Simulated assay, not measured.
Amino acid sequence: MTIPLADDVFRAPGVELFDFPPLWEGAPYWLTKPVVLAVGGALVVCALAWAAFARPTLVPRGMQNAGELVYLFVRDQVARPFLGKDAERWMPLLLSLFCLILLWNFIGVVPGLQFPVNAHIAFPIVFALVAYVIKIYLGIRHQGLAGYFKNLMFPPGLPKLLALTLYAPLELLYTFVTAPFTHAVRLFANMFAGHLLLAFFSAAGFWLLHEQPSLVGAPVGVLSVAVAVAMTAFEMFIQFLQAFLFTLLTAMYIGASLHPEH
């Protein structure tokens, strides 16, 4: 997070916070801070998974105990409600997705790093496209091409004319455009907005208390710092919630393709 400074005028942080040049002059254009944080976060998730499950014991302790708690949470709160008997089969994907998104989000409140990877739209788009491709593939594989579109466009009990003229176009638009778009943007927008708010209150407190201290501005500066601290705690809750919701929707899409009758 970059704190904007000025001699006598406060400049609120803006979208420039999300514009990262290459790490050094002459580096590839794609080699930026978010990419390094993304790769580092993925390696951390792999290391934690190895530490938790490489040598499992009958009585879990330490990292294994923590890993099993996360596994049980994803299995019972995300996978089983939508996948039923297929939950265990899809747990590697869902657990990896949840842990990686959560860690990438939490990087936004780590001092010195302070940028949630998913505040860069490219990363949520990749996650959403993976979920989307799996959803369409499973739907066609388990229902057949004709059966998939029939179940999608003509639900039982709905008059054919109404389905053809109103329901089918809306459902096609939702399935192939709206659903993957909102799946990605929901995660991105929350991380983007949260990072911007934290940057604003942190910058305001720094400017009022350090750059331009005054008797009038000091109370506002203290308030800004207090709000930044409170917002950090709230942002961590939002970061967890968005990881949970993204994984939950992925499980719901997979379950709908595997079991269209539900």
Score class of each variant (00 low, 15 high):
161 L>E: 10
143 Q>T: 07
144 G>Q: 06
104 W>R: 04
103 L>C: 02
156 P>N: 10
100 L>M: 07
101 I>R: 05
177 V>Q: 05
138 L>R: 13
181 F>Y: 14
124 P>S: 00
111 P>S: 05
162 L>V: 12
169 P>G: 07
155 P>T: 11
110 V>Y: 02
176 F>D: 09
112 G>A: 01
169 P>K: 08
98 F>M: 01
153 M>F: 10
181 F>V: 15
165 T>L: 14
92 P>I: 04
176 F>P: 03
139 G>N: 08
164 L>C: 12
121 I>D: 00
136 I>Y: 11
150 K>Q: 14
165 T>C: 11
154 F>P: 07
115 F>A: 01
164 L>Q: 13
181 F>W: 14
97 L>F: 07
121 I>C: 00
101 I>H: 09
149 F>C: 01
148 Y>G: 07
147 G>F: 08
103 L>S: 02
179 A>Y: 11
168 A>L: 03
107 I>G: 03
138 L>Q: 14
114 Q>M: 14
139 G>D: 03
121 I>E: 00
98 F>T: 01
133 V>N: 11
102 L>G: 02
184 A>C: 02
168 A>G: 04
117 V>Q: 00
115 F>L: 07
124 P>E: 00
135 K>P: 14
181 F>G: 09
162 L>K: 09
137 Y>F: 11
160 K>M: 09
158 L>D: 08
143 Q>W: 07
131 A>F: 06
105 N>P: 04
143 Q>N: 14
177 V>R: 09
152 L>H: 08
100 L>R: 04
109 V>Q: 03
128 A>Q: 02
168 A>M: 06
130 V>N: 01
172 L>H: 07
93 L>I: 06
170 L>N: 08
157 G>V: 12
161 L>H: 11
141 R>P: 13
150 K>A: 15
166 L>P: 11
129 L>Y: 10
182 T>N: 11
154 F>Y: 14
123 F>V: 00
95 L>E: 03
118 N>G: 05
149 F>D: 10
136 I>P: 08
113 L>H: 02
125 I>H: 04
126 V>P: 00
171 E>M: 15
178 T>C: 11
163 A>P: 08
168 A>T: 06
140 I>Y: 10
160 K>D: 15
161 L>I: 14
153 M>G: 15
166 L>T: 12
